[in-house]
């Protein structure tokens, strides 16, 4: 497949966008997607672990440990998991950006200026 873009009927894309000249091969797209899925799986395991795992399923057991005045299971359920969630999103944003650059599928600067001009009109 040489042209990745899906053109819906009746849509007119601006003709000279940088993207239309760039070719993303099937192999690149597949490689990027696999790397993305692997990263997602790792992060979602952590997501599940701190919330459903430490905060609910293992909470009673963890409560035997004390952490800054909290029972540990209780702390994960009402504090800890939330902090981990925030960190997970930023880790994803950073690591996926590296993967995108490696595969050459990132969203680069040309697009922002294009959008800003459209937004202002």
């Amino acid at each position: 497949m040489s042209e990745q873009h899906y053109h819906h009927q009746g849509e007119n894309f601006p003709p000279a966008s940088h993207h239309d000249q760039q070719v993303i091969t099937d192999a690149v797209a597949k490689g990027y997607w696999r790397a993305n899925l692997r990263l997602l799986a790792q992060l979602l395991i952590v997501w599940f672990g701190v919330s459903f795992g430490f905060g609910i399923l293992l909470a009673d057991w963890l409560d035997q440990f004390s952490f800054f005045g909290f029972k540990l299971g209780f702390w994960f359920a009402q504090q800890g998991a939330i902090y981990v969630f925030v960190v997970l999103i930023f880790i994803y944003a950073r690591r996926i950006a590296v993967i995108e650059r490696r595969f050459g599928v990132d969203d680069d600067e040309h697009d922002i200026t294009a959008t800003k001009k459209q937004g202002a009109s």
């Binding site: 899906y6 894309f13 599928v105 697009d111 459209q118």
Partner: peptide, 22 residues
């Protein structure tokens, strides 16, 4: 197949600026 191509396209971040034209 055009819908399958749409899915391929949204999985790739490149070119989001123009996707806003409607």
């Amino acid at each position: 197949s055009d819908v399958q191509n749409l899915v391929d396209d949204i999985r790739i971040p490149t070119g989001a600026g123009i996707a806003h034209e409607h």
